[in-house]
């Protein structure tokens, strides 16, 4: 699915530069469900942004499928984001003036699909996250959990092979977090590779593998566990 080979990333702030990712090396196979953990400032978001082709890196190689992702044209990058990757953000990032349905349908707009068609498809995806009746509501009328479901539906609508979620439960209470992670697990079961950045061990426990970062270095990229021990442990 994807492979990082000695990836380095610096932030230049004024005169000095900050070495945020140091020789990051790991591989994620197709269909994996991976958590990325680490202290605040360890470089998790930076890493995820590079994986999502939202940001550049300074050295090393990032392979997405068979493609080396390096200084792509904005147009190509946009195309990858549109068709290959789905994003879920901590702060949802829904467009406030659009309804849930329109938010979900937006990626299809950039595929040139007609409004009617994409609304039809968006309805199916809203149904899938259990928000069929909320199609005509704007984000301000929805709870955090509902907003995140809308965001997940939006991430899924382009039929991506990879979902990147940066602290998707960071703004939610524990019960809602659990529901969102149920949804993530369900998505993963359909064969989509899912990477979740999180601070929350309970969230991480739902995944099949944890990559730990410390000061921009991968300290642990344990191999895939069998599957969902926590879930099996529950009655």
């Amino acid at each position: 699915m994807l492979r990082l080979d000695k990836v380095n990333k610096y932030y230049r702030v004024g005169t000095h530069s900050l070495h945020v990712l140091r020789d990051v090396d790991f591989e994620v196979a197709d269909g994996e469900f991976v958590a990325i953990m680490g202290a605040s400032g360890s470089g998790k978001s930076t890493l995820l942004n590079i994986l999502g082709i939202l940001d550049d890196y300074d050295s090393g190689e990032y392979w997405l499928g068979d493609t080396l992702i390096r200084s792509l044209s904005e147009k190509k990058a946009a195309n990858y984001r549109n068709r290959f990757i789905g994003f879920v953000f901590q702060s949802f990032n829904l467009l406030p003036f659009k309804t849930a349905l329109e938010n979900v349908a937006l990626p299809l707009y950039y595929q040139g699909i007609s409004r009617r068609k994409r609304n039809q498809i968006a309805e199916q995806y809203l149904e899938r996250v259990g928000l069929r009746d909320w199609a005509d509501h704007t984000p301000s009328e929805m709870s955090g959990g509902q907003k995140q479901r809308v965001a997940i539906a939006r991430a899924l609508i382009g039929k991506p092979r990879l979902i990147l979620a940066d602290e998707p439960t960071g703004a939610l209470d524990s019960e809602t977090s659990r529901q969102i992670m149920d949804l993530m697990a369900e998505i993963n079961k359909t064969g989509i590779t899912v990477l979740v950045v999180t601070h929350d061990p309970e969230v991480a426990a739902r995944t099949s593998r944890i990559i730990r970062l410390k000061d921009g270095k991968v300290v642990d990229a344990e191999h895939a566990r069998d599957s969902f021990p926590q879930m099996q442990a529950q009655p």
Binding site: A78, N79, R81, F87, N93, L95, P107, R154
Partner: peptide, 16 residues
């Protein structure tokens, strides 16, 4: 800016 960022993350090309 934020909205434009979101649109770009969802696949908006510079031309669009």
């Amino acid at each position: 800016t934020k909205e434009i960022g979101v649109r770009k993350a969802l696949g908006a090309t510079p031309f669009s």
